[in-house]
Computed example of a mutant assay.
Amino acid sequence: MTRRIVVASLEAWDGVWRRNQYLVDGLLDSDPGTRVLFVEPPSDPLHDALTGHSPRRGRGSRVGGYDGRLVLHQPTKALPRIAGPLADALLTRDVVAAVRRLGWSDGVLWINDPAAVPLVNALGWPVVYDVTDDWVQAERTGRQHSRIAAADRMLLELSSEVVVCSPALASTKGASRRVHLIPNAVDVERYRLGVPRPGDLPDGPVALYVGTLHEDRLDVDLVLRTADAAAASGGSVVLVGPDALGARNRERLAAHPGVVALGAREHDAVPGYLQHANVLLVPHVVTAFTESLDPIKLYEYLAVGRPVVSTPVAGFRETKGLTVARSDAFPGAVALDLAEWRPSVEYDDLPDWRERVAAFGDVIETASGTRTPREGAT
């Protein structure tokens, strides 16, 4: 049986794998009848021009692999969102046209990006809303917050099934309807397979952070104070991941001699960085937004078993064997772990992505009407 899925994603399909890619990869690998149109965030030529970058159009549709069963599609944002409904209408029409070119008349719409809510009526398909971050809780301007909150309310009301990744999201999004709790996971075998030390890691002890650099999560002031403490121990703070920081914070990190920002790395290369760090960092702000998260880095950090120092954020706060420190004690705790190389620890019973793929596949089938709701939904 052919299963067609349109995924409206918050992230592009690239070398930095997030939840969407692990789940889509697993669904395609486990079922040769699955077909996926993965809709990436649109390009924004006007924003490019206003920020001094070369304007570029979206890449449109192209084959993403899996014997042609994965098609990637990046629209072009012709108008800024301030233009109102017309901007959304043009983006929606672009995606619907891509679906029609594939010859698809039915399927399931999987929404991760709340901004894609107009696709619900445009396609008229059953909807699975996968909530991975509670953007309603993030600090945004009044207009942005109102738009995000309205889209979230609509999706909670109109979706056939709602999936959440954390207990906090199960509580908030499940207050008005049934939701499925499907947390994140890790490819345990790949992260435990020993690999050589990456050549771009600096000499000396390394305190490593892996993840997108973003003010919604990263406490930049704490990173800088931790770099001061690391430098006093002869070490450095290394940041691996895409940079979504504002210009001011990016400049502050670049100006500190004890901070090394390596940028994004392919997902296959990430285990090597984690395995060869003296200590792994989670210098996150503690907010209602970060409380909603189920960080993939928690499972990746545990899979390699290196020492971890985290602020008291969800997931890390509840995990035994990790150092959880408030921001004032955080740099000192990191310095202690940099003082000497400590042996890795092997944690048992870590969840594998294959388990999550199976659970998510059940939700897709429930939404499409081919399966009754499974037991265990929240």
Rank of each mutant, 00 (worst) to 15 (best):
G26K: 00
L253C: 06
D294Q: 10
F316C: 05
G33K: 03
R342G: 02
M1Q: 11
S327F: 12
G369A: 11
A207D: 10
V260N: 09
E300V: 07
L298P: 02
A98T: 00
D219C: 06
V186M: 09
I364V: 15
S171K: 11
G376H: 06
P167R: 14
K173C: 00
R140P: 01
G199C: 11
L262E: 11
E215G: 11
V99T: 06
E11K: 02
V260I: 10
P257M: 03
P373H: 09
P41R: 02
P41S: 08
L119G: 13
L253M: 01
T51Q: 11
L274F: 01
I364H: 01
L350M: 07
D221E: 15
P55S: 02
P271Q: 14
L72A: 11
L201E: 10
G272M: 05
R101M: 08
E365W: 00
P126E: 09
P271G: 12
T76S: 12
P312S: 00
D44N: 14
G315R: 01
E365G: 07
Q74I: 12
T141E: 07
G65Q: 12
V285G: 08
Y209H: 13
T287Y: 04
V270R: 04
A207L: 06
V179T: 13
R197F: 11
M154P: 00
P373W: 01
G246F: 09
R371C: 10
E40Y: 03
L10N: 14
H47M: 11
A358M: 12
L336H: 03
D88A: 15
V240K: 09
R326F: 09
A49N: 01
L46T: 10
D243P: 04
T319A: 03
A122D: 10
A358P: 05
S54G: 08
E375G: 14
H47N: 08
Q74N: 10
D29V: 05
E340G: 01
V127D: 05
L119Y: 02
V127W: 04
A138C: 05
E318I: 12
V128H: 11
A255P: 00
W135V: 11
P75N: 14
V308K: 12
A98Y: 11
D106W: 01
V96H: 03
L10V: 11
V285F: 10
A314I: 08
E157R: 15
W135I: 14
R192Y: 12
D328R: 15
L253D: 05
Y209D: 03
D106E: 14
G369W: 07
Y347T: 12
P202D: 03
V186R: 02
L91R: 14
G361W: 05
A303T: 07
V282E: 01
R192M: 04
N121S: 15
L79T: 08
V127I: 09
A89G: 15
A12Y: 01
L280K: 12
P198R: 14
G234F: 00
L274D: 08
D294C: 15
A115V: 08
A325Q: 10
V117P: 00
A329W: 01
P42D: 12
A122R: 12
R18A: 14
L102N: 05
R3G: 04
P343R: 14
V36Y: 01
